[in-house]
């Protein structure tokens, strides 16, 4: 009889401990969850800043382009103020397929995503518009990179800004957009 109660008691204690452990784990991960987007943004900005400097921009210009303090840019370039694995994660993100890279970055940074994606993209793309384009402007409206304009009722894709996400092609009612990857 006594043994029976002990088993019940021990089981209850075990269940309570398990619930507590789960709670602690959840809290720890939540804290990380709250800060995670910021860390990723820092990582992406870091990568962009490094690339822009390599392209020959000054620190002042980089700060203007990324809308950051000059001191933060300087800190970034010296590898400070970044959490341990945010650069690693940001690098992984830049290796995503262009659409995922753009959509994730856009969700994190909205308009500012354009310069990040343009700078960190690993490939270059060329958009070819077929004669069947009717100039409805849907691609112009839909392009998150603002890489498309209409010219004489025909879309025109700016290769400098095209990130190869293919979102325009998916929405084109006449299948008139072809995006080709060109070697960088």
């Amino acid at each position: 009889m006594c043994d029976y109660y002990t088993i019940i008691f021990k089981t209850c204690v075990l269940i309570l401990v398990a619930i507590y452990i789960l709670y602690v784990v959840k809290c720890v991960f939540n804290t990380h969850g709250v800060h995670m987007p910021k860390h990723i943004v820092s990582g992406l900005k870091y990568l962009t800043a490094v690339e822009l400097i390599r392209e020959g921009y000054s620190q002042k210009e980089v700060a203007e382009i990324l809308e950051m303090d000059r001191s933060t840019v300087s800190h970034y370039l010296n590898g400070r103020n970044l959490s341990w694995n945010s650069i690693e994660i940001a690098e992984k993100i830049t290796e995503f397929c262009p659409k995922d890279f753009l959509l994730l970055t856009y969700a994190l940074m909205h308009e500012k995503a354009r310069i990040i994606v343009k700078t960190c993209s690993n490939s270059e793309f060329e958009g070819i518009i077929k004669e069947s384009c009717i100039g409805c402007g849907l691609c112009v409206d839909i392009c998150l990179m603002k890489a498309i304009v209409l010219n004489d009722l025909k879309a025109q894709i700016d290769s400098d800004w095209c990130c190869g996400c293919l979102i325009c092609g998916e929405s084109c009612p006449t299948n008139s957009i072809e995006i080709l990857e060109v070697k960088k």
Binding site: S132, D152, S176
Partner: peptide
């Protein structure tokens, strides 16, 4: 006239 081939065709 229009410069767009698709419009001209339509």
């Amino acid at each position: 006239p229009t410069k767009s081939k698709s419009w001209d065709k339509k």
